[in-house]
Design a protein around this nucleic acid. Structure first.
Lengths: 288, 288
DNA sequence: GGCGGTCATTGGACAGACCATTGATGCATT
DNA sequence: AATGCATCAATGGTCTGTCCAATGACCGCC
């Protein structure tokens, strides 16, 4: 099943012994620009070898000649074929691994296997942008509300009885939880709840988006220990019932009200956190 | 402005000379499980050093002690502080770079700088999943239609006169294009059109999502040379006008009809491409 | 037949070296 | 004074070679 694939060397099979190392950087003129004919001077960007390797793999992926399950040649062989060092190959494989495109396995029949991509990469990158301040909590929670509204419409059309049963079982699990239980358990159940809903959309893209937004928001919920909503269970029951009855408007309203309430709570928690951080900073300031 | 930050070594400053290398893999028992008290034997996953380094950086990011613009210590110094080889540090930095979290700069005052994250990572990972068959064209175009419907509602509420002007100017650019022009130019203008719309949502998360879906779909448009929609310009004009007049329902309808038409065309193109691929495969088969 | 040891394969990590790029610094020229 | 040039140090990019650790196949012994 794991078709063996070879990667062609772009460079014409360098001589075995190169006089020296380290000048393997390829210069590539930006293909954009060239609009007005005069000088224009496109910026030069130096392409590193690991990037070149990644691109080669991605090209073959896009062309369909490299499919999930396929195995790339071992690092050493790949390095030889491409005429680069094993370290460079490793950096390329590392990049592809981080991108969720290949998986690395040690051992006898190990190697780099093409995967099917990884939805978590989307979550991670949005989370990064959130943590680095490019995305605000305000925008994040708003987007989640809107996306879930949209999803609920689809779900009301497409939900199947088994999915309804799964949702009901999930709510039941919430009821059996001790009130004093850890926040992480409640959050885990909620994550599962939204995952079930996202799956009911029957659309993998929406699943990826919903799971990303949900996971990031729920992590915030867990960290900013806001109190447990006492009427959460009742809300979930109503929501599931509306979905089961395909009452789109009711389901949407139920979902939206809940998410907006959560949004307000989170925003308040953020403000107080910012305040306490500011006072701490002020204290440090005056301490000096 | 570029605050200098240090990363603490977790390991207690190893002795300078280690007897041998290569056994730096940390074993970590999965914290899940441990449900029934009996044996249970959680699976063991070995964490690689570069992962450990990445996590340390991300932790400081989430905690706010590492912010965009900050500079990490140089590779050599970092390797020394963490007690690992420079290659391991490089693989970690490579991962963070691929994730859009840090940027590497050569030269005198170069180093690894914390960035604000990169929206393109989302695009890339979704595109990977698409190319690897995890996401279907059907799901992709449906998701795009739905997300754009949602976006249009927001845009009709929030659009500003300057944004309307920018949209109109974009449509004008489309008219000045020679009919026989390259598909890539038309696609570039369309991409810009959708970018302007996404920006009018005033929500960075939606911007990221819309740009990702749009870019992937438009790339498909470009590759599967479907004919130019002769009434595209009229459609765009109507859409912009509806948005400017905040006629939500009209704008939504206009947007949806167009996207659904495009969707049908793309799906047809996909089918024919699959067919020709199948015949090719069949031909190869019989040739043997 | 099954158990256990051996071995080749392959990724993981390290050490040490050199090259290329970049910005600063100082000197010489204009 | 402004410009141009050579030099230098800092830093990422790359290469080579070596060893370790995990993995699965194979083989022999009981």
């Amino acid at each position: 099943m794991t078709r063996k694939t070879t990667i062609a060397a772009t460079t014409p099979a360098r001589a075995k012994k190169r006089p020296a190392a380290g000048r393997r950087v390829v210069k590539v003129a930006d293909p954009v620009a060239a609009d007005r004919s005069h000088p224009q001077f496109a910026p030069i960007r130096t392409k590193r070898v690991f990037e070149e390797i990644c691109e080669q793999v991605r090209r073959e992926m896009a062309a369909g000649s490299l499919r999930p399950g396929d195995k790339l040649p071992p690092e050493r062989e790949l390095a030889l074929k491409l005429g680069v060092s094993r370290a460079a190959v490793r950096e390329a494989l590392r990049s592809l691994e981080i991108a969720g495109v290949v998986g690395l396995q040690k051992g006898a029949h190990g190697g780099a296997f093409i995967l099917k991509g990884d939805p978590d990469i989307v979550t991670r990158s949005i989370r990064d942008m959130f943590h680095l301040g490019r995305i605000s909590l305000d925008n994040l929670t708003e987007a989640r509300t809107l996306v879930m509204q949209m999803a609920i419409e689809l779900v009301c059309e497409r939900i199947r009885p088994t999915a309804v049963a799964a949702l009901e079982k999930n709510v039941d699990r919430l009821t059996t939880l001790p009130v004093s239980g850890k926040a992480s358990e409640r959050v885990a159940i909620s994550a599962e709840f939204y995952r079930l809903i996202s799956q009911a959309t029957d659309n993998t893209v929406l699943q990826v988006i919903i799971e990303a937004l949900t996971e990031i928001v729920l992590q915030q919920v867990e960290e900013s220990n806001i109190e447990f909503f006492p009427n959460l269970i009742a809300h979930r029951r109503r929501l599931v019932e509306h979905i089961a009855n395909r009452q789109v408007d009711d389901a949407k309203r139920e979902m939206t009200e809940h998410l907006q309430r959560l949004r307000r709570h989170l925003m308040r928690a953020e403000r107080t956190a910012a305040d306490s951080k500011a006072t701490r900073a002020l204290a440090e300031e005056s301490a000096r």
